[in-house]
Amino acid sequence: MSRSLENKLIESGIAVSQPDVAAPIETPWFVRAIQAFSGWLAALFLLGFIGMGAVFLLDSSVASAILGLMLIGGAYALLRQTHSDFLEHLALAASLAGQMLVAWALASVLGSTLGWDNAGLWWALLVLQAVLALVMPSLTHRTFSAFAACLAFYLAMVETASAPTMAGGLMLLGLTVLWLNEFRWPAHVRQLEALGYGLLLGLLAIQSVGYFGQSLLLGRYFVGSGLDWLEPWAGDALGLLALLLLLRHLFQRHAHAVEPGMRVATYTAVLLLALLSLEAHGLSHGAVVVALGFAIGHRGVMGFGGLLLLLSIGSYYYWLDVTLLAKAMTLFALGLLLLAIRWVLLCRWHTGASVAVEEGADA
């Protein structure tokens, strides 16, 4: 490797192993799991001891906020200095306790001034979790904070505009842009991946809750106000917009390899997906995540997309107002259709391979 290339890789934050340095031995996964469990157990005992002595602080919003910020600050300092799984999870538990204390203080202040049914608490928690997701020097903490920020954003949109599916669509747009620009900053690839996984977990959580007809507000459901007249098509429209952005990115990257006929077929498939989403809401979200994982070559993202597809199709099948016999016959017909499509594709593949072999023999 040339010296200039090695310097460029080091400046970009990519570690370059030297030939005379032995590769570090990684800790087995079961040892790391035991260390993480020990860290959470120690944190629970420690926080329980602190809680027994400081329970009177819950009566004061200022004292709760100060103690919570101190716990978050201590977790930040510990995470910057440690490379141990035990201490990392201990700091994570302390940070979660601090976040709960800060949330309690915010709820007390905003509830007493603006009323207990306002969305100010969720917007404030969204800002807190977004800041923690960006600054905390721990991939696990970044993932959890991004996940918590998604939930807070969902609840804020429900309380503010009565638009739960719009929240999911905006999250899908955000994670699409994030994963497509993953390698734009090579020194922060792992941090961006942690944020991406948090957004995927948040999207999966809120979509699952919506498919089962439940609410994250503990029995409270959004009322008809705000942007409820856009529901539930707003989320599907944003999902299709994310899919179009993804296709535009792919067509620009592979401009010379994509034929005009392929572009027409792709946009026709997008139109068909839009028509299907009018009935099976959320189908476009799973399709976008699957296409995104395939585009960036990430099997984990494709797995999340498969789960979203299964949830949306299963929800549509469960809530479909027809008899079980009609549902069974529909599944049977779909199975036959998929098998026929597989047979056609295999026949075309074998035909193309045979023609290629014959042309090679003639040459």
Rank of each mutant, 00 (worst) to 15 (best):
E358H: 14
S38I: 06
V131G: 15
L172K: 08
G360D: 13
L128T: 02
G115K: 12
T140G: 06
G239C: 04
A269T: 10
W104N: 15
V264F: 13
L178P: 00
S38V: 08
G213A: 03
G202H: 00
T113L: 08
A23E: 13
D236I: 01
A93P: 02
V102A: 09
L247F: 11
P137C: 03
F294G: 10
A15T: 15
L275M: 12
H285N: 11
Y211P: 01
S64K: 02
A265Y: 12
A340W: 14
I34T: 08
L69K: 01
E279W: 12
L134S: 13
V290N: 09
A328K: 08
G306T: 01
L5G: 07
M329Y: 12
K8A: 06
I206H: 00
P24E: 07
P260C: 00
Y316Q: 08
I341G: 03
M157D: 04
A33L: 10
I313S: 09
V135D: 00
S138I: 13
H298L: 15
G13R: 02
G98F: 09
E358I: 14
L175Q: 15
W343S: 04
A163Q: 00
E358F: 13
L47Y: 02
A75E: 05
Y76L: 14
D20H: 06
G282N: 11
G74F: 11
A361M: 11
V31E: 13
T176C: 09
G48K: 03
A103W: 07
T143Y: 00
L331Q: 14
G303Q: 06
A124V: 00
A194R: 01
R142Y: 00
A255I: 12
V357R: 15
H350A: 02
R342K: 08
A15L: 11
A91C: 05
I10F: 08
A97N: 05
G219W: 02
L292Q: 02
L92H: 06
L121H: 02
N118M: 05
L41A: 15
R263C: 03
T330I: 04
W343K: 01
L110Q: 12
L244A: 15
L199M: 07
T176N: 11
V55W: 08
P260Y: 02
M136D: 06
Y318C: 01
W122Q: 15
V131S: 09
G39K: 03
C347F: 10
V209W: 00
L216R: 06
F304D: 01
E159V: 04
L199P: 00
E359Y: 01
F294S: 05
G98C: 05
L79Q: 15
K8S: 11
L106A: 13
G239E: 01
A234D: 14
F30G: 06
H350W: 09
G13K: 04
F294V: 12
L325Y: 02
G73Q: 05
Q191I: 07
A119D: 04
